[in-house]
C-alpha cells in the first residue's frame, strides 16, 4: 500500500489492531441477572459491548481488553471476570 500523502488515513483501520489479545481476564455475561440497563455498554472505554437481538449485552472479544469496568459497574452483578485460559 502506497503511503498516504501527509500521514493521513480514513476510518476503519484501527480495527486491524485486535486488542482482545491483551486480555488476562474475560468478562462473562449472565443474561439471567442482566436487567438490560445498558450501563456496561455506556462505560466501556473500547465501545465493544453490543446489544443482541434479544437486547442483552455482548462483548466483542476481538477488542475487549478485559479491564473489568463493566463488571465493576454492573448494578445487577451480571458480569463476572474469569481468568483467560492459555
Amino acid at each position: 500500500m502506497a503511503l498516504a500523502v501527509g500521514c493521513r488515513a480514513r476510518p476503519g483501520k484501527s480495527r486491524d489492531n485486535k486488542t482482545g489479545s491483551w486480555r488476562v481476564f474475560r468478562p462473562v455475561f449472565d443474561n439471567e441477572k442482566c436487567s438490560k440497563c445498558g450501563l456496561c455498554q455506556t462505560v466501556c472505554p473500547e465501545g465493544c459491548i453490543h446489544e443482541t437481538d434479544e437486547e442483552f449485552m455482548e462483548p466483542d472479544y476481538t477488542y475487549c481488553k478485559g479491564c473489568g469496568l463493566c463488571a465493576e459497574e454492573c448494578p445487577g452483578g451480571a458480569i463476572e471476570m474469569k481468568q483467560e485460559e492459555k
Binding site: P11, G12, K13, S14, R15, D16, N17, K18, T19, W22, G38, T42, V43, C44, P45, E46, G47, C48, D60, T62, Y63, K65, G66, C67, G68, L69
Partner: peptide, 26 residues
Amino acid sequence: DKSLELFECGHRACGGCGAALAARLA
C-alpha cells in the same frame, strides 16, 4: 444519540482508560 460510536475499537489505550472513555462519550 447514545448508540453513536465515533471512536472505534482497536485503539491502544490502557484497559480501563478514563481518557478513552471520555473521548467516546464526548
